[in-house]
Design a protein around this nucleic acid. Structure first.
Lengths: 194, 194
DNA sequence: GTGATAACTGAACAATCGTTCAGATCATAG
DNA sequence: CTATGATCTGAACGATTGTTCAGTTATCAC
């Protein structure tokens, strides 16, 4: 096994993914060519195929990686505390996690239609897992009397839509700190389900 | 002037726009070719250029038309009543208007990045007009003591994101009627800002 | 009927697409 | 040093892209 240390693949591989992430988020999957990605990395288009079997796999891998990270981080939040505590943790987590990776979030929401059917099913299923975590919190809160929600499924989608919307305008150099944004949204979410 | 009545252009023109709307919404602007649109219409690709100077203009025209319709319909809601009444009207209007034209809504949100800079500015400005209408209602409600909102600009974006999210799941043949959906969301919006 | 013209076809244009691959390059193992 | 194999280049592939346009077709006014 030659070139184990100092191998370019350990540098080029991540760079391909970063370039693809940035370009897909900015221009859309279909509008970005493999040659554009290669130029961004500083390599010829053919070299990309050392790191992905094809363009579709590159998109899917980025989305799959993002969803796996999201679900793992959500799981690490734990299940302790009252439904209200858990909802607050979820709210703050969603905002901060998503604000840290706007490009991956953008792709994972906008490029679902660019996925081939079997890939789409996988990502869609992971998204449902995430939604179900929030729905569980809301149902527990309904059972304990902490929340008053007409329809927990709809409330779940409404809250997630509201929170994800932060990514369309939040900039870390902006008027509000992330902590302030979290507080404002937590106030709104709490009232929304109470 | 020959062929005024029975002219095909009065039929083909709208059909081009309908086909483009449907295909852009389903596959994305960049992923749809002029030949696909032409096939949908039942015509050769060259014939499309009797109805649009180019592909970009077709997208922009669809988005511009949607935003103009949206703003005109919003204006027709009037400014009468208390801030709470106006917020309820806005909420129900947003849900029903958007639910009636999911493809135009989808395109107008997702294909902003496919617009050339000057076209983007125009659509973006129209969207801000719409947001400002809601923000005005929230500010009036803050002044009158009807609403308690930490940041009216953020509350505006949060409410719109929440309401627009309906389009990702609502189907007219689904579990809930549009009236029920409106009621559920109005309950959440009201509590959100109270 | 005839003439006018809107509407459309079908072929062509250069450019670009995703992908493949033989061969060049180069750092490392031995 | 040489041999090895990962890494990358550069050219090529057939297909497809948006767009143009000379020529055909169809429907109107007269």
């Amino acid at each position: 096994m030659a070139r184990t240390t100092g191998s370019h693949s350990e540098i080029t591989g991540p760079r391909v993914r970063e370039a693809a992430l940035r370009l897909f988020a900015r221009h859309g999957y279909a509008a970005v060519s493999m040659r554009q990605i290669a130029t961004e990395v500083g390599v010829q288009a053919g070299a990309l195929y050392n790191y992905t079997p094809d363009k579709q796999s590159l998109l899917f891998s980025l989305m799959r990686g993002h969803m796996d990270e999201l679900l793992a981080a959500r799981k690490a939040l734990g299940e302790e505390g009252s439904p209200t505590d858990r909802l607050e943790r979820f709210t703050r987590f969603h905002i901060s996690f998503h604000s840290e990776r706007p490009e991956a979030v953008f792709i994972s929401y906008m490029e679902l239609r660019s996925l081939e059917p079997e890939n789409f099913q996988i990502i869609e299923s992971l998204r449902r897992d995430y939604e179900n975590a929030l729905e569980g919190i809301l149902r527990d809160g309904m059972d304990s009397g902490a929340f008053t929600v007409a329809d927990p499924k709809i409330a779940t989608l409404a809250v997630i839509a509201m929170l994800t919307g932060v990514n369309t305008w939040y900039r870390s150099a902006g008027r509000l700190t992330l902590e302030e944004v979290e507080q404002i949204y937590w106030d709104m979410v709490r009232r929304c389900v109470s």
